[in-house]
Design a protein around this nucleic acid. Structure first.
Lengths: 420, 420
DNA sequence: ATAACTTTGTTTATAAAATGATCGAAGTTA
DNA sequence: TAACTTCGATCATTTTATAAACAAAGTTAT
């Protein structure tokens, strides 16, 4: 036979590394990743190659086990095409979203389809090795539940709530979790899952990536994903790529000043957006409204709740039409919108996606954000601007983490970074 | 001979287009553009090609007249290398910087070296064809002064003070010059100079590009160039590329709000940065200080000047230690710094370059900007942040325009855009 | 000085890669 | 049914890249 290398093609690939490919192979994979399943003829069209080369390249990838034939497609007026897809049996991917108070982890196939999920509360202020050991346990848990051996996990995408040195996979001066500084997160998982390629990124960058790959951000060149929860952060996509900034802390808009006379933030400055408009500020204002009698409804909720309120309560009060609650949300939306207005002038995105814990808040928040942005941005920058909730809701983090792992599943030779 | 195509290699290239090359040729050009003059061996190292391929590629480019041999280099312990350079005789480039009240134009060789320059005052509110005709005259003027025929002009880079649709080469809703909306600037020059490839961009983007190619922004992945003059604008570089935003108006920070109780700006909003901190605001405050007696020096200058002051006067008063003048500059610097602080948190640049008409202002302005940024940005984002005046001074615009023309002098097949 | 080694750049034989043309298989449409 | 399409494989041919050999022009150690 003319292809003697076929016999040793399925040999084990090296550990600790993603699947390396040359440029041509990577182009095929890219086309397949976008389109799901396509024929050789379509690959030929997308790449611009001759049918001969396409055929041969596909044969090689099938030989290596990366691609599989998944049957016939519908005829276009001639012979039916044979459709190809990235081999699901290749292994599994893990998406891990580490929040300030939670762990969310999913197991997905290499196509990105979620197969298993786990979530639990956890305090990120624990020592990193303790915390990450628990993460590993959860990963092993969902892996065994799916019948997946640890060495079948090919990639792990990790999102952490702080500035990340992307190349090294460590946190840099994270305010929420000082103990984690310089802890080698990437290496930790790499050690536990030697067959997997581990990629660590900031949690909001990951959400932005998820929106770009699996949400409404497909084909959008410039957008901002803003996460509103306990804190406020953003993920930035410029020219279709994640903008991480010079030391990886781009998007950290929670401490932009909105009011010099505002309260003191935990960062030490006064009037930070996060201190005035995020979840804790909302509940605090709501509890004040409950106490000073301006909202009997909130008072009632607080009493029923053992003297505390959570953002969801304020949301519920909004739905009942409670004026004090509406005013609290409106004020938060306006402050966020004012900051976004500046960023819109500066960055000129075509989309802003709003996500995070606080976004099952109906439209009150979104409406005030929109109003503030439109009022304070240049008309030119807002005429084609869409501001909407992310479709992905609470799944945004893990979806993005899987997308990150998937992004690095196949990597072009000599380009270890630069995929996203 | 083995190369029969050599005979017809120097045939005329098509007009209206940059010099098209395939990927390999472009790589050689890129290496030469960065390094000035290098040997075949170095090209081989940079590209990773075999000596044979490198040699052949170089021979082809020399045959086409794009490259020339410029003599021997110093020996590295063996045979002396023969150095190659992009052929200066290929033609000329034009850099044109259109300001609100001025035209600056230079003629440069394809290496970017400025050979001739002209500047004159002009009002951009004239009809665009009248204004641009004057620009063409100036270009022809410097061309003839250098002994350059119009058809030897291979590229024209144009900077205009407004949002630009980069692909089409037209202004989009420019506030300063509404008559120019949809006027085909690119086509205008293309028509007058058929041999040239014309690229139009926003004036501050061009300055940022100049800083990146010929200033201190070389090898800097993420930076902001801020121009302070009659207005305030910025050029953004993300991941090494100009970030223009979804409709080309990114960087327009002049109308970010710094004080909701501030004065009304010509844009209709209140308290815009530009209205409070740019040149006109400074002179206005200075004239007020002159009139109300808080600065006898400024009063004296104003009287000597026919009842008006310009930013340079305020600068001069600062040098004399005039407290009122210093306070005016300090206030401007603080407002600009406050806005930049937000942008630093958001964008995490490693450098901020300050340029524009107001920047021969000594260090008072810079010091207040720095102080404000450091006070209000996250320490993480500022520890490795440098804020400095652009080295290029008033040349920034035309330098950038030449860099833009130079960038598109050679273009890879099928990639008409995307070089910067 | 002279011999031995280096670096540079060309040439040439060889290997690798891509292509166009051709062909058979499997369809659809007139 | 016949004529036309599309899909994919094969193969001879052309294009492209490479390694090895070589010549030219130096440098350095002896």
């Amino acid at each position: 036979m003319a292809h003697p290398e076929k016999s040793d093609a399925k040999q084990a690939r090296p550990l600790h590394a993603p699947i390396l490919m040359n440029g041509a192979e990577a182009e095929v994979i890219r086309a397949l990743r976008r389109q799901g399943k396509i024929s050789r003829a379509e690959i030929s069209n997308i790449t611009g190659w001759s049918k001969a080369k396409t055929s041969q390249e596909v044969r090689s990838l099938v030989g290596k086990g990366y691609l599989v034939d998944v049957g016939e497609g519908v005829s276009q007026g001639g012979r039916k095409p044979r459709l190809l897809r990235i081999n699901d049996q290749l292994g599994y991917l893990v998406g891990l979203d580490i929040g300030a108070t939670s762990i969310d982890v999913v197991l997905a196939d290499v196509g990105g389809k979620v197969l298993q999920r786990r979530s639990e509360l956890a305090d990120v202020r624990q020592p990193p090795d303790v915390f990450l050991n628990r993460c590993s346990e959860l990963i092993l848990d969902i892996a065994t539940a799916q019948g997946c051996r640890p060495d079948q996990i090919l990639g792990i995408g990790v999102g952490v709530p702080g500035p990340v040195d992307f190349a090294r996979g460590v946190l840099v001066a994270p305010p929420l979790m000082p103990d984690w500084e310089n802890f080698l997160i990437r290496d930790f998982f790499q050690h536990t899952f030697p067959a997997a390629y581990v990629v660590v990124d900031n949690d909001v960058n990951i959400m932005a990536l998820g929106e770009q790959r699996a949400g409404d951000g497909i084909e959008v060149d410039h957008f901002i994903f803003i996460k509103i929860g306990t804190g406020i952060g953003s993920g930035i996509v410029s020219n279709g790529k994640i903008h991480r900034g010079s030391i990886g802390c781009a998007g950290d808009i929670g401490h932009i000043c909105v009011d010099k006379q505002g309260p003191i933030c935990r960062c030490g400055n006064t009037g930070c957006l996060e201190a005035m408009a995020a979840g804790p500020a909302i509940t605090e204002k709501a509890m004040l409204a409950a106490k000073n009698g301006s909202s009997p409804l909130l008072r009632q909720m607080m009493d029923a709740n053992g003297g505390v309120l959570c953002p969801e309560d304020v949301n519920a009060a909004c739905r009942e039409g409670d004026q004090a609650a509406l005013e609290i949300i409106r004020a938060s939306g306006q402050m966020i919108g004012d900051v976004l207005a500046s960023l819109v002038n500066f960055f000129n995105p075509s989309h802003i996606f709003v996500g995070g814990g606080i976004t099952n808040f109906g439209n009150h928040l979104l409406v005030s954000i929109r109003r503030a942005v439109l009022r304070r941005s240049l008309p030119l920058a807002t005429t084609h601007l869409s501001i909407n909730f992310s479709r992905m809701g609470p799944e945004a983090g893990v979806t993005g983490a899987v997308a990150l792992a998937r992004e690095y599943l196949f990597v072009v030779e000599d380009y270890p970074f630069g995929t996203v």
